[in-house]
Write a protein that binds this DNA or RNA. Structure first.
Lengths: 129, 129
DNA sequence: CAGCATCCTTCGGGATACTG
DNA sequence: CAGTATCCCGAAGGATGCTG
């Protein structure tokens, strides 16, 4: 596994460049909204645009479109357009997209554990005062 | 494990609020620099401020300070100040901070796999044209 | 060396209006 | 419904100078 140091040679993949695979990962699934988008698509399956928007809680239409297009370009998300009126578009994870789910679940599990420990400490702190 | 939907009730932990533990995780270790900072501290151990800055490749002093303070406040990073001239400050992961490393390694491994598959496809595309 | 304070710029992203 | 297309603001973050 590549170790992420600034000293690594710059790699290229398509029009993207990065120093290590960790950085590559962050470029693909990092940012403010992408992890949540992927998580929703992974947990609940296929989603329409407006469903995703409601689920994301606070994301604007512009941002959601933008992030989905980037995920699509990176082969993580599939966009299915139904040629009908009114329009219907469904988003889902590609096979590649599905491979990130175990890691996202781990992140979520880590959060649960952190929550548990932090709550304990908060409790202890209250008792001390 | 909590499912991340906007419909969940808002939870509180300290002065932080979130809808699910996945969101909590992102608040703690998400953002442009934090994953890389944690990864460096986790892989290479203790780091001085200037070492980290060099390793991070492009981060400004202001950002590095800011991110380190937030990680410290969240119990992920330990800051050891040596009272001497010139000053020396060393950063390392706390026990809590170390618990995130397996997940970060998974993210890195995922990137390697993505890189491999994407490179294959790029190759196939070149041959076709 | 490891910061803090300040100023200043960029651009992420919100609001709004319009379309196939 | 699922988008584009603009306009525009404000916070994120860069540059610089100073200090214990």
């Amino acid at each position: 596994m590549s170790v992420p140091t600034g000293q690594c040679p710059l790699k290229k993949l398509g029009d993207r460049s990065y120093h290590c695979t960790f950085e590559l990962t962050l470029q693909i699934i990092g940012g403010k909204w992408k992890p949540m988008i992927l998580y929703h698509l992974g947990c609940d399956g296929v989603h329409r645009f407006s469903e995703l928007r409601r689920a994301l809680n606070g994301i604007t239409q512009k941002m959601l479109t933008q992030q989905l297009r980037e995920l699509e370009a990176d082969g993580m998300v599939h966009r299915e357009v139904y040629p009908q009126v009114p329009p219907k578009v469904e988003y889902s994870l590609t096979p590649m997209g599905r491979t990130i789910m175990p890691v996202l679940r781990q992140l979520c599990a880590w959060g649960s554990e952190y929550e548990r420990l932090a709550a304990q400490q908060e409790q202890a702190h209250l008792q001390a005062s």
